[in-house]
Design a protein around this nucleic acid. Sequence first.
DNA 1: ACCTGAACACCGTTCAAGT
DNA 2: ACCTGAACACCGTTCAAGT
Lengths: 249, 249
Amino acid sequence: MPGRPRTTRRATHSLDQIVDTAIAMLDRDGTSGLTLRGLAAELGGGLGSIYWYVAGKAELLDLACDTLIGRALTADDAPMPPMEVELDTDDAVVLEAAATVRRISLALFAQMDEHPWLAAQSRLGGADRPNALRVWEQVGRALAAMGLSPRQQFHGSTAITGYVVGVAAEMSAQDDAVDPTLSQEEQLDRIVERWQGEAYDDLPWIRSMADQFRRHDDLAQFAAGLDLLVLGLVRQAVSPGRPRRPARG
Amino acid sequence: MPGRPRTTRRATHSLDQIVDTAIAMLDRDGTSGLTLRGLAAELGGGLGSIYWYVAGKAELLDLACDTLIGRALTADDAPMPPMEVELDTDDAVVLEAAATVRRISLALFAQMDEHPWLAAQSRLGGADRPNALRVWEQVGRALAAMGLSPRQQFHGSTAITGYVVGVAAEMSAQDDAVDPTLSQEEQLDRIVERWQGEAYDDLPWIRSMADQFRRHDDLAQFAAGLDLLVLGLVRQAVSPGRPRRPARG
DNA sequence: ACCTGAACACCGTTCAAGT
DNA sequence: ACCTGAACACCGTTCAAGT
């Protein structure tokens, strides 16, 4: 790994500028559309100079991902749809922890919704992604505050992070699959049309979902499954017959 | 899309052979290690002949993925860890549907565990993946049999499929991140060691998970989160105040 | 300390030519 | 109908040479 610039004396680039431009290119052209040559051209510099700032394309992608995950960590404007399931407890600490898990997950989803290439790149585990680790930390702390056992904390944190990345990736891939020149409306029509073909004759359930699919909302869909997980975690936390959570602090 | 071979008269290749060899290469070398030149060499033929069977690398990957998903659909040897949560209902139809969702999910996970490149490629939605669509269909039918509303079926099916792909992808990525020449034991040690470094000084929760992580089991971890989702779906199905599910048949 | 661009070793894809 | 391999248009990465 090359050194990061300590002084900006003669630099015409900066790491931040490179990463920001890379993110803009990724948003426009997708992961395979990000090219080091293209990036150099966009930056108005030579191809090789990028290598003074990052070790290669993989590290550049790591940085781009972690930058956006970092924005999710500090975002306070992520949409927060109301919970549709009853958590069925009045334990304020548990409820607050559940709200924290929801808030982080929804903020992550908002970034992955805005940047359709992100979910597929998001190894939230794995080192050299400091902000991803911070996501894990915050989810884990919330589950600990709920009073879950260490084992439940461990399993619960991977369930939440896996769910977020997986559902976002599926949704992003679905959007990629259709002609992007069409309107949102027409894309949905095109897919539902395909479901009427004879290839789907033995997939009646998918066909029956045409109505749901036509008026579906990615955010509501994401939140619905998330809340199933949150509900399950809260049930574990308040289930009788288990030792109470330790006092905080 | 080129035609598929109707006769095998003079063919030295077949589509099945190409896909199977590609899967073997993917297992050995990963997604970026699968090369059309390498594949041609392994098949003992020319580079161009592959293009008579598949339109390109993307279609080859689609076929490889869908082949393995198809194996998950017919597998009856996938490990089935017992449920650790109480479903708290004796409705036989609901319990059977829950078992079906669990069985499909665990069979998919088994494939993704065995083929670490699979999860990252798995757009389960999206057409031109017939077996993936069949997974969706089967999960959806089970949720319908539970008596969930169409909206709950729709949200539930994306939650399950998203969870499976997401958790499997995270676990596969984690395994990639460490030196594969080391033993399983040593890889875990290496990661936990890193957690003791000062970079993790403000990530105390992650550090506290060292014990859990050292003796973790991917399958148990996957099943634990899956069961949270299944529990949530069953709660929705049996919650009072909703119209009963229609009789079957 | 930071930048440049030619050079290298690869890719996936195409296609005229074969059998 | 099926196969071949040279040719093309790209990649990411390296590195000697610049300022």
